[in-house]
Computed example of a mutant assay.
Amino acid sequence: MRVVIIAGGMGTRMRPHTFSHTKALVNVAGKPVLGHILDELLQIPIEQVIFITGYLGYQIEPYIKEVYPNLKAAYVEQPVPLGQSHAVKLAAEYLAGPCITMFADTLFEADLQQLTSATHDGVMYVQPVPDPSRFGIAVPGPDGYVKKMVEKPQQPESNLAVIGLYYFREGEWLARAVSALIERDIKTKGEFYLADAIQIMIDEGAKFTTSEAQVWEDTGTPYALLHSNRYLLRRHNTHGNAPYLQGSSVVIPPCYIHDSAKLEHSVIGPYATINAGVTVQGSIVRNSIINTNAQLHNVSLSASIVGDKAIVRDAYRTFNVGDNSEIGAETSAEIDETFK
């Protein structure tokens, strides 16, 4: 089984954090989004993972080599963001035999074991939603196979939203479909969408079934990232629900606190991620992600994301602070009194 992870795109909805990190490496619950995805995928035998990279994509290979040294990986750059199918076409040489395609900003829990014995042409992972008009949906026919895919339908024929995780029994068929899509210049919103290539396969007779994902979490916006942070902290909580002392600070689970973080006279949690090298003094932090080597002094933060090496002082509000930023009172700054 080969896996193609589409990790291009500018990540504009996650700025300022994606000014300095590719969106696949934005941290949530103590590790990059991509790490959580790979941990879920590796529940089945994987022959190779192909990363389609774009803006800041050069950051992915060092991360993989350090954290997943035994993973056989290939890297393909998409220099111009022309869409998902265009990205897959760039990886066509790797599309041989069974393969999975997915996006680098989608967290999931799903039964992947079934794919090791799948006999259909493909599987679409879906989740029922109350408002299908907001999503791309799969429409099963009377025989149970998907007859069409519709992007944000005004009159939905199904409530099965596709989560962006697909299995193809023959990667070669997918490669032919994305090539045909591009040759015919079939675009949605100016881009070559993967769903349109899959529709070509369906029109050619491909039999796709659906499989319901137990969990589907987006990480493409600050709000969505914090929602995913809460889900992951609950999932991996090993401290129970009772508050506990960590030095002079109180921790209210669920939280992630790196061993190298320094907490002094603070209240942490619930739903706080405190990453490596972080210093928190005299502060309250809940429902927030504090990234590597950031400093918090006398703050009360909720629903906040604080970037690497950022410093926040004497603040009582919600923040979305990028790397190397500084916010709050600074009493040591020199004041120019020339014209006082």
Rank of each mutant, 00 (worst) to 15 (best):
E334Y: 14
P69K: 07
S325Y: 13
R230N: 13
A87I: 03
L181Y: 00
I198A: 07
V321H: 07
P128D: 01
H227R: 15
G307N: 09
R15A: 02
Q114S: 15
E204S: 13
M124E: 03
V146N: 04
I289H: 04
I60G: 03
R235I: 11
S283D: 07
V280K: 11
V139W: 02
G83R: 00
K89A: 08
L181Q: 10
S288R: 03
A272S: 05
E170F: 11
L301H: 09
T221M: 10
S300I: 08
A333Q: 15
P254V: 08
A175Y: 10
H21A: 00
G205Y: 10
T279Q: 15
A315N: 08
V123S: 03
T106E: 05
P222V: 06
L34V: 01
P243E: 10
R313T: 14
M201W: 08
Q43S: 14
S249C: 07
Q246W: 14
N291S: 13
L232P: 08
I5F: 02
E157L: 09
I202W: 00
N229F: 06
T116W: 08
N237W: 05
Y125F: 14
V306D: 01
I274V: 13
H297W: 14
G8T: 03
W216G: 00
A87D: 02
E212V: 00
L301F: 04
W173I: 14
T12P: 02
I198V: 15
K31L: 06
I52L: 12
T210W: 00
L233F: 05
I37Y: 06
V4S: 05
G282K: 08
A315T: 14
H258R: 12
I305G: 05
D143F: 06
Y125D: 04
P98H: 10
R134T: 04
P32K: 03
T331I: 14
H258G: 07
L41P: 05
A329L: 14
G205I: 08
D314F: 13
E40T: 00
R317E: 14
P156Q: 08
Q155F: 02
R184V: 00
L95T: 06
A118K: 01
K189M: 09
Y271H: 13
A206R: 12
Y316E: 15
H86L: 06
I200N: 07
G54A: 10
F51S: 04
A315C: 12
P140N: 05
E212G: 04
P140H: 07
Y75F: 14
A24D: 04
V126H: 01
F103L: 08
D121A: 02
